[in-house]
Design a protein around this nucleic acid. Structure first.
Length: 477
DNA sequence: GGATGTTTACAAATGG
DNA sequence: CCATTTGTAAACATCC
């Protein structure tokens, strides 16, 4: 298939875009600095607020930018309000705290990684309250609001934050109390719940302490078989019938790295994820839980996208109509360039050979809207990867730190796409910890000294957006 | 004795 | 309505 690089396509795309977003006209003519010609700024995308209302505190090194603009258009949430808590500036105690909801365990200094970007906040988790999206709940310092994470999620966060393949109960306690003020002041019964959860939840596996290891109690880890039940550290157990449970043991269940749109909708509703209770507890003395999550907002955005708030597909459809028969032919770089938004799609410095996006599916090639309306299991893989690349790995993360799908992408670049079932072929064991998933194959849960994996939420947001946008798969398939 | 771990029971919320 | 999930409480056992 020839890649359409025709300026006509680009112009038409631009026209359609501006028809939908006439306010972008100014962007079109805005002068661009060098930072806008690559996606280096996207290193910060998951960290720096993309909130348009927020001043561009990221500084000149962080584009203000068209790319942000474009990605916002694509439904990326405003990460400035994504995070579950927002410790005050200078609070350095949250070293293990999330930069992103759902991955409250991102480690490393982003200010070091992105020296040009002065973060207005360290990027601690914040969650908008349902009543006011502008109000952010600082779970790290606010003792009144119970974090909307299930205990399983909290345990998982703590485990990942520890950077160790196995953690002790006290480590879990400590992490939770350090990062969620509520539990510092709460009755210690929550610890009982933690213990109860560890014991009861099959996802958690106890690792007995070696006889020569001093200390109390054993270690706990996430059972690799169930690692894919956690997305960014958030427990996402699908409701399954007893029959399903009996017929789909973890060993039988094919590991799928990409949650379906359905599953994302059902279970990745971020703070709320894992905590299915969306209503306030009936007991009046119960703490208030924030119930609306960034991912919920994101889902809303996605739904807006699908419902016409912005019909990206229609834009592409219109652009493509009469010009090419398949969406995969679109050189989106050209299209985006027409908007002054240069998308440098590369994987670790390598230019993506085939443009940004590629549709994969088992049937005839369809237009995006057809993909959506027909609910086929198609995936716009490279666009997804690009989004992840944007948020995660632009020259910063090693392959071992990437989401498995990213590595899959790389593999696929070395091996051309085989067949049309690309999305369904993820033979690599799934793990909460990407590099550990690989380790688990050889030496399960061996001590990993490498810096903890950092999977900003936006990575999965990227998944969530694109996979959810364009694909739908039955759970656990 | 306190921390840890297991088990049981129950209630509330939720989804099919 | 029922099954499932989640949270909570409690009793009990084990270990350091």
């Amino acid at each position: 298939m020839p890649v359409l690089t025709s300026p006509d396509i680009a112009n038409k795309f631009k026209e359609r875009w501006l028809a939908v977003f006439p306010e972008d006209q100014v962007l079109d003519s805005a002068p661009l600095d060098d930072s806008l010609t690559s996606l280096h700024w996207l290193q910060n995308f998951s960290i720096i607020s993309t909130d348009p209302e927020r001043p561009n505190a990221a500084g000149p090194g962080c584009p203000s930018s068209l790319q942000h603009h474009f990605l916002r258009r694509l439904g990326f949430p405003r990460t400035g309000t994504d995070s579950p808590s927002s410790p005050p500036a200078g609070d350095t105690a949250a070293s293990g705290m999330s930069l992103h909801p759902g991955s409250p365990f991102t480690s490393g200094s982003d200010s070091q990684r992105f020296p040009n970007c002065a973060h207005p906040t360290p990027g601690y988790p914040q969650i908008p309250l349902q009543t006011s999206p502008q109000v952010e709940v600082d779970y790290k310092t606010n003792p009144k609001v119970k974090p909307p994470y299930s205990y399983a999620s909290l345990i998982c966060m703590a485990m990942q934050a520890s950077k160790q393949p196995k953690v002790t109960l006290s480590t879990i306690y400590n992490w939770i109390t350090e990062n969620f003020c509520y539990y510092r002041h709460a009755e210690p019964s929550w610890q009982n719940s933690i213990r109860h959860n560890l014991s009861l939840n099959k996802c958690f596996k106890k690792v007995p302490r070696q006889k020569d290891e001093p200390g109390k109690g054993g270690f706990w880890q996430i059972d690799p078989q169930y690692a894919d039940m956690f997305v960014n550290g958030i427990f996402k157990r699908r409701r399954m019938s007893a029959n399903q449970y009996s017929n789909s043991s973890a060993s039988q269940r094919p590991n799928k790295l990409v949650p379906s749109y359905d599953s994302i909708q059902d279970t990745c509703s971020f703070p709320g994820v894992g905590s299915k209770r969306k209503h306030l507890p009936s007991k009046s003395n119960k703490p208030v839980r924030a119930t609306e999550s960034p991912l919920l907002v994101m889902e809303a955005n996605k739904m807006d996208l699908l419902k016409g708030d912005f019909d990206l597909a229609s834009v592409f459809d219109d652009v493509l109509s009469g010009n090419c028969s398949t969406f995969e032919d679109l050189d989106i770089n050209t299209a985006l360039s027409s908007l002054g938004c240069e998308m440098e799609v590369s994987i670790h410095g390598r230019q993506h050979p085939a443009g940004l996006g590629r549709w994969c599916g088992a049937g005839d090639v369809m237009s995006p809207s057809q993909h959506i309306s027909h609910h086929q299991s198609y995936g716009y893989l490279d666009l997804s990867a690009a989004s992840m690349e944007c948020s995660v790995s632009m020259g910063e993360l090693h392959a071992s730190q990437q989401h498995p799908l990213l590595r899959q992408q790389q593999l696929d670049q070395d091996q051309p796409l085989q067949g049309q079932h690309h999305l369904q072929h993820f033979d690599e064991p799934t793990s909460l910890f990407p590099e550990q998933s690989r380790e688990a194959v050889l030496q399960p849960w061996e001590e990993i000294k490498e810096e903890a994996q950092a999977i900003p939420l936006t990575l999965d947001q990227g998944f969530g957006l694109y996979e959810g946008f364009f694909t739908e798969m039955p759970p656990w398939e």
